[in-house]
């Protein structure tokens, strides 16, 4: 059966991809032992960007408020940790749960509108939460940030040390698991319907499928992933700041996603790594030069590489192998 052959080929490709992520992650561990805290932040943000890809790339819903889901996870894990729940795995699950609930709420609100009003709703939600977190300073620490967390050792063995080795490896493991699960989700019947909704909602409804519950489900999944990212950041840095639930973080996530290419999952990772590495270098020199650069890069992407880096690489690869591909048909 050709089906099983192609199925095993996709499984093989997925395993290869996971191995590649693990390899790059471990290489980072050996090459930059002094920057593990930064690399852990990269992983945390990568989870956020992955979660955004689920909504933007797979469902075609533009959002500038993904920070709401990330921040919900970060604050939930942080607050739980301050109040004595210190098991890191449990904290991640709490963050995931909080993100999922926030995803449900956000989806229920955003899916009422389309186009610009929908985009505005996404921004308004993240700003509202930002203000709420600022106001509720007795719970969240307000503008000083939430501190005083001390997560227990991972699995009762690995301490979260000063160099952030445990946190980084924990994050890398989490990323691999989430990535594998999302590969599976995007290849499920549900994932295919989402792709269909992005391209033509009318056709989907003519098949007898309701769009709203499908999209809402994706918001919940997206919230789960973003919430885990936020929780990871809380555990690793042991501080949760107001910036974790902000328009800036949401807009940056979108930029990273577009830089890497939407609707790929891999693109989300590539975009995050490149963006944050550049930011690490350039923003250290002058944050405003960094803004100019990001702006210029965005304009360049729209003008010259609308499918992002991964899409453009795909296209290049296809152009290079086109003759072979044609002959194979």
């Amino acid at each position: 059966m050709p089906m099983t052959a192609s199925a095993s080929r996709t499984v093989g490709r997925d395993l290869l991809g996971l191995a590649l992520i693990a390899l790059v992650g471990l290489a980072g561990y050996w090459l930059f032992p002094d920057n593990l805290a930064f690399l852990t932040r990269v992983i945390s943000v990568a989870l956020l960007v992955l979660s955004l890809d689920l909504i933007v790339g797979y469902c075609g819903v533009a959002s500038l408020g993904q920070g709401a889901l990330y921040g919900a996870g970060a604050y939930a894990a942080g607050i739980a940790c301050v109040h004595g729940i210190t098991d890191p795995v449990l904290l991640i699950l709490i963050g995931a749960g909080a993100g999922a609930i926030m995803g449900l709420l956000m989806g229920a609100i955003m899916l009422r509108a389309h186009g610009l009003p929908q985009l505005v709703l996404s921004i308004a939600i993240v700003q509202l939460l930002h203000e709420a977190a600022n106001k509720a300073s007795s719970i969240t620490g307000g503008s000083d940030g939430l501190s005083g967390m001390s997560p227990a050792p991972l699995f009762g063995v690995f301490e979260f040390d000063l160099w952030g080795r445990s946190a980084y490896l924990f994050g890398l493991g989490l990323l691999l698991i989430v990535f594998a699960v999302l590969r599976f989700v995007t290849r499920s019947p549900f994932g295919m319907v989402c792709r269909g909704l992005k391209e033509d909602p009318l056709r989907i409804s003519a098949l007898g499928i309701y769009a709203f519950p499908v999209l809402l489900k994706m918001f919940v999944i997206s919230g789960t992933v973003a919430g885990m990212g936020g929780a990871l950041a809380a555990i690793a840095t042991q501080v949760v700041g107001l910036d974790s639930v902000s328009f800036e973080v949401s807009a940056n996530a979108l930029v990273m996603l577009v830089l890497g290419g939407i609707g790929h999952l891999y693109g989300a990772l590539i975009g995050t790594v490149i963006f944050m590495a550049l930011e690490h270098v350039v923003a250290a020199i002058n944050p405003f030069h960094w803004m100019t650069l990001v702006g210029a890069v965005l304009i360049a992407i729209v003008l010259f590489a609308p499918r992002g880096l991964s899409g453009t690489l795909d296209e290049l690869a296809r152009m290079l192998t086109r003759d072979r591909w044609r002959a194979g048909r």
Partner: peptide, 26 residues
């Protein structure tokens, strides 16, 4: 970006905004 998908327009105009901010500060 006239007639392009909304996401493209968002990206282009956010890009312009960022550039203006950076240049204004410079």
């Amino acid at each position: 970006v006239y007639g392009q998908p909304e996401l493209t327009q968002v990206l282009m105009t956010i890009g312009i905004t960022f550039c203006v901010i950076g240049i204004a500060n410079y």
